[in-house]
Simulated assay, not measured.
Amino acid sequence: MRRRRAALEDLFTARRLAALWALCPQTSDPATAAGWLDPVWEAAGIEGVVIKDPCSRYRRGERGWLKLRTRMTTEGITGAVTGTVHSPTSLLLGRFDPAGQLKLIARSTPLSRPAAAELGPVLRPAGQEPPTPVTSRVHR
């Protein structure tokens, strides 16, 4: 694995690869990797880190590596659902912009059956009025 990484680094250096090409950072230091999970990195396109044995190889269709995603918490409004109101499969979350328009900011992960069963009875179809600002915590 170390030889493959060194060869990849040499290729990037020799070809002077830049924009559109990115050599992902690598570390064996847990504190450094934890720093990469800061939500600030999400703005740079880093959605998390992959944890793997440095001697392992990618094997299509197998789950031998672990991916940890960054998490960001913010206030949001459940503006819509996928699936049906009575049996939602995910939530579409929004926030009001400065002009007062509700803007989509995220989609939840797929809801578990128990979560969908709990939410279904309390959700109501949208009417003509704008949504009531009932907030929920959003983890992205």
Rank of each mutant, 00 (worst) to 15 (best):
L37A: 13
A99P: 04
E118D: 04
L123R: 04
S28V: 04
D10V: 13
T73Y: 14
P54D: 04
G61Q: 05
P98I: 15
G94M: 13
R15V: 11
H139V: 13
T73K: 04
T74D: 12
D38S: 11
R60Q: 02
A34V: 12
A19P: 09
R95C: 10
G76S: 13
A117L: 09
R60C: 00
G48M: 00
R59Y: 01
V40P: 03
A14L: 13
S28R: 09
R3G: 11
L37H: 11
R113H: 09
G100I: 03
L37I: 06
A44L: 07
L93K: 05
L119K: 02
S112T: 07
R3S: 07
H139R: 15
L92T: 07
V40I: 14
Q26V: 07
A80W: 07
L8H: 06
C55M: 01
W41S: 00
V134D: 12
R59C: 01
G94V: 08
P133S: 12
Q26R: 03
V50I: 04
P125Q: 11
W65G: 01
A117T: 13
V50P: 05
R3V: 07
P125E: 09
G127Y: 02
R113M: 07
R69H: 10
L68E: 04
A80R: 08
C55G: 00
L123E: 05
P110T: 10
W36A: 00
I77M: 15
R69C: 15
A19M: 09
R60L: 02
G83P: 04
D38T: 03
P98R: 15
R16A: 06
A116D: 02
T27Y: 04
T89G: 08
W65E: 01
A22D: 06
G83H: 06
G64E: 05
A126C: 13
A14K: 07
P114G: 06
T70F: 11
L23S: 12
E47Q: 09
P125F: 10
A117P: 03
W65N: 07
G120P: 03
R2N: 13
A99M: 13
M1P: 05
T84S: 08
G79R: 10
R69W: 10
I51S: 00
A115C: 09
G79P: 02
L8Y: 03
I46F: 02
G120H: 11
L111M: 03
P131W: 10
H86G: 14
A14F: 14
P133D: 14
L37T: 13
T73I: 09
C55D: 03
E42Y: 08
F12G: 08
F96R: 11
R4G: 00
Y58D: 02
A106P: 03
T74G: 11
S136P: 02
V85Y: 15
L20S: 15
W21Q: 03
A19S: 11
P54V: 01
T132F: 09
L111W: 00
E62L: 04
R2V: 12
W21L: 11
T135V: 08
I77S: 06
G127M: 01
V81M: 05
P110V: 05
E47L: 08
I46N: 00
A115L: 06
G127A: 08
T132M: 09
V40M: 04
Y58F: 05
R5I: 06
E129K: 01
A18V: 12
F96E: 12
L66D: 01
E47F: 07
G45F: 02
R124Q: 09
